[in-house]
């Protein structure tokens, strides 16, 4: 089909009145709405970060604190972002009724997620020597934003382990019943994507300008 024909087809009555979105389950919508409200929460936090930063003016981080180094956060990114892939793989597996894929994928994600949290802990151990949550507004923002995200990772990991435990039993998930897997997966992807925003805000943006 050429481009022109494509446009004509896409703007026909038939195409324009296509139902979109369609066919999602109630659980899917529930999780998506929950993620939407959570995403707004993070947007408000990140907005607050930039608001305080620009209202503060002057050097940032303030009070002679050093800008965060990039090595560890990049390692954390390398651990967390790919952790969505095993979840996708696991979900696809259970859609075909392959329970072993579900178990393996979840286990791999669990390991990656825990690694991420350990890295967060080492990051904190180092940072706490330089500044704490009460040092100044920058310290408050740093720990609250990363901590809040860390908490979300923890919640996500709890979901993943819960799924893993459930999937180890027989009679829980299968090709026709995997709503819970899909919903937990949506949440985990969300936790991942938010990390990208936090990486930019907390670690990269102080280095710009």
């Amino acid at each position: 089909m050429n481009a022109r024909g494509g446009i004509a087809a896409a703007t026909s009555t038939e195409a324009l009145t296509t139902e979109q979105p369609v066919g999602r389950s109630a659980g899917w919508w529930g999780m998506v709405m929950f993620v939407a409200t959570e995403a707004t929460l993070f947007a408000c936090l990140i907005g607050s970060y930039f608001y305080l930063r620009f209202q503060h003016g002057g050097p940032w981080p303030p009070d002679g604190l050093t800008a965060p180094t990039l090595a560890r956060p990049l390692l954390m990114t390398a651990v967390l972002l790919p952790s969505s892939l095993p979840v996708v793989w696991a979900e696809r597996g259970i859609r075909r009724g392959q329970r072993w894929r579900l178990r393996t994928g979840l286990a791999v994600t669990l390991v990656l997620g825990v690694t991420f949290l350990i890295l967060v802990a080492t990051e904190y151990a180092e940072k706490l020597r330089e500044f704490t949550i009460t040092t100044n507004a920058y310290g408050s923002l740093f720990y609250v934003i990363t901590g809040f995200h860390g908490f979300h990772v923890l919640v996500g990991l709890t979901m993943i382990s819960w799924l893993l435990v459930a999937s180890l039993r027989r009679g829980t998930f299968g090709a026709h019943r995997h709503d819970r897997v899909r919903n937990a997966a949506i949440y985990w992807h969300f936790v991942d994507v938010v990390w990208a925003a936090i990486l930019f805000t907390i670690y990269l943006s102080p280095r710009l300008s």
């Binding site: 024909g5 004509a8 896409a10 195409a15 296509t18 979109q20």
Partner: peptide
């Protein structure tokens, strides 16, 4: 005007509606 647009055209049409 085609009366039976393909799945991609339908998706595009459905999205165009929301735009």
């Amino acid at each position: 005007m085609s009366t039976h647009p393909g799945p991609r055209a339908r998706l595009a049409g459905g999205l165009l509606l929301w735009y």
